[in-house]
Simulated scan of single mutants.
Amino acid sequence: MDHFLKQKIFDNTIESYLYVLGTILVMLLLKRLISKYLAQQLFRMIANKKNQTARKSFLDLVVQPLGLFLLLSMTIIAVDKLRFPGVLDFKIYRITSRQLVESVANAIMVIVFIRLCLRIIDFIATILEEKANLTKDQTDNQLIIFFKDFFKVILVIIGILLMMKFSFNKSIGNLLTGLSIVGAAIALATRESMENLIASFIIFFDKPFAVGDLVKVNGFTGNIEKIGLRSTRIRTTEKTYISVPNKQMVDSIVDNMSLRTQRKAELRLEIDLSATAAQLQSLTDAIKQILTVPEIENKVVFLSETGKNAHVVLIEFFTSAEQPIEAFNLLRQETNLQIINWLEQHGIALAASNTSVTVKQV
Rank of each mutant, 00 (worst) to 15 (best):
M1D: 06
F4V: 09
K8R: 15
F10S: 06
I14Q: 12
Y17E: 05
L18T: 03
V20D: 04
G22Y: 00
L28Q: 05
L33R: 08
S35P: 00
K36E: 04
K36N: 01
Y37G: 08
A47F: 09
K49Q: 01
Q52M: 13
Q64S: 07
L72H: 13
L72S: 01
M74K: 11
P85F: 04
L88A: 06
Y93N: 13
Q99W: 07
E102T: 06
I108V: 11
I108M: 11
V110A: 06
V112C: 08
L116F: 10
C117S: 14
L118N: 04
L118G: 09
I120Q: 05
D122V: 14
T126L: 10
I127L: 10
E129C: 01
T135D: 14
D137A: 13
N141T: 08
L143R: 14
F150V: 03
F151I: 09
V153G: 00
L155E: 04
V156P: 00
I157A: 00
I160M: 00
L161V: 08
L162C: 09
L162W: 08
M163Y: 05
M164E: 11
F166Y: 03
S167W: 04
S167R: 07
F168C: 02
G173P: 03
G178W: 11
I181M: 08
I186E: 05
L188W: 01
T190L: 10
E195R: 06
S200T: 10
I202W: 07
I203N: 10
L214H: 06
V215E: 00
F220V: 12
T221Q: 12
T221H: 07
I227D: 10
T232L: 02
E238Q: 08
T240P: 06
Y241N: 14
I242Q: 07
I242V: 14
V244G: 05
P245N: 00
D251M: 09
I253D: 04
D255M: 12
D255Q: 15
L259G: 05
K264N: 13
D272V: 07
L273P: 03
T276N: 01
Q279N: 05
L280T: 08
S282C: 05
I287M: 11
E295D: 00
I296M: 11
I296C: 08
E297H: 12
V301F: 02
F302C: 10
K308Q: 14
V313D: 03
E322T: 02
Q323W: 12
Q323R: 12
P324M: 09
A327K: 12
F328K: 09
R332Q: 14
T335V: 09
L337C: 02
L337H: 06
I340N: 15
W342F: 05
E344L: 10
Q345E: 11
G347R: 15
G347F: 06
A351E: 09
N354W: 15
T355Q: 05
V359N: 01
Q361H: 13
